[in-house]
Structure formats: C-alpha cells, structure tokens
C-alpha cells in the first residue's frame, strides 16, 4: 500500500462501467466527487455525505457501497459500476429501470440512481429475493417523493421478470 501525502495527488486507475479510467486525485477527494466532477459521471447523486440517504450508492467490485463514504484513492484497481452502466445500450432501459417507469416508482429521480444500484446488486446476488429482502435493502435509502410503495411494486415486478427470463424491454 503506497503511503499517501496530503499535498500530493495520487494516481488512481479503475474501470468505470467497463471503461478504463486513469486520473490523479487528492488523497481526501471523495469518490462521489471524483466520479461526478472529475469523471463526469453525474448520474450518481449526493444527498447527505454521511452515508444515510443512499443516493450515492454504487457498486465496487460487485458490492454495493456508498460513494460518499469512500475515498477516490481507495478504488485503485477496482471495478466501479454506476447507474450510467445499467441500461443494455443507449436508448434502452434494463428490466429494473423499465419496471420503475411502468410503476411510477420515481418522481424527482434524485434518489433513484442509488436505489437502482442497490436493487440491481440484490437481484444479481439473490435472484430469489422476496418482498422482505427487497424492503430490507430499500431500508438503506431515503426517498421523499414516492412513499416507497411503487418502488416495492417495481422491484417485485422486475425480480419476477428476471426470474422468468422475460427480459425484453
């Protein structure tokens, strides 16, 4: 592990949604700021910067994580996935994204990126996830607009489609 100095930037290399990124970061630079303002990936949102609201949830090496509680220099060598990488191709939506649209599971859309990342990770880790598990994972996110119920419905719809292989959106 290299020793970092406060006044020197450090080289950080990782993949962002499959694309190689190589940049320099201040040791104290938050990953949320780095992704948004250095890499231009503004789909990950910042709501509280203390890890409660969940808006900045991303995937680091396959595990959901709060970008606001991670330093950019910590992801050296990691695979980072964000909301920008969810859709199968530009102009299309994933099964989960499409379920959100059909169930009106978003209003302002600010917290949505983090919720999508958590659910997407849950469904890939636990294809049999039931409503209890879905609610358990959603408990790590704050949404002010929807009252959550449409999000739960969208998640149940998506996981059932994913299970049955109905993935044409």
């Amino acid at each position: 592990m290299p020793r970092l100095r406060r006044d020197e930037t450090t080289s950080v290399r990782f993949t962002l949604n499959g694309e190689a990124v190589s940049r320099r970061a201040d040791p104290r630079m938050l990953l949320s700021d780095f992704l948004r303002h250095e890499c231009g990936a503004t789909g990950t949102h910042v709501g509280c910067e203390h890890g409660v609201c969940g808006a900045c949830t991303i995937r680091i090496d396959g595990t959901m994580a709060r970008a606001c509680l991670t330093l950019a220099v910590q992801v050296e060598g990691a695979e980072i996935e964000t909301v920008e990488g969810l859709a199968p191709e530009p102009g299309r939506l994933s099964v989960l994204q499409d379920a959100f649209r059909r169930h009106h599971a978003l209003q302002c859309g600010f917290c949505t990126a983090g919720i999508l990342m958590s659910l997407d990770t849950l469904f890939s880790d636990e294809p049999e996830a039931d409503e209890v598990r879905i609610r358990d994972v959603l408990g790590g996110h704050l949404c002010r607009c929807t009252g959550y119920e449409p999000i739960v419905r969208a998640a149940l719809d998506a996981v059932s489609r994913l299970r049955s292989g109905k993935t044409n959106v």
Binding site: T42, L86, R101, R102
Partner: peptide, 21 residues
C-alpha cells in the same frame, strides 16, 4: 390516462440535469 412519464428514461439512466450536473 396514466401515461408513462416522458421524464423517466433520462432520470433512470443517470442523465438527468440537476444543478450540480
């Protein structure tokens, strides 16, 4: 009618345009 929202695709794909974006 409860039409699909035209706002959603961009918001779901991370291409919303919020002030800090």
């Amino acid at each position: 009618m409860s039409r699909l929202r035209v706002e959603d695709a961009a918001l779901l794909s991370g291409s919303g345009q919020f002030i800090d974006d």
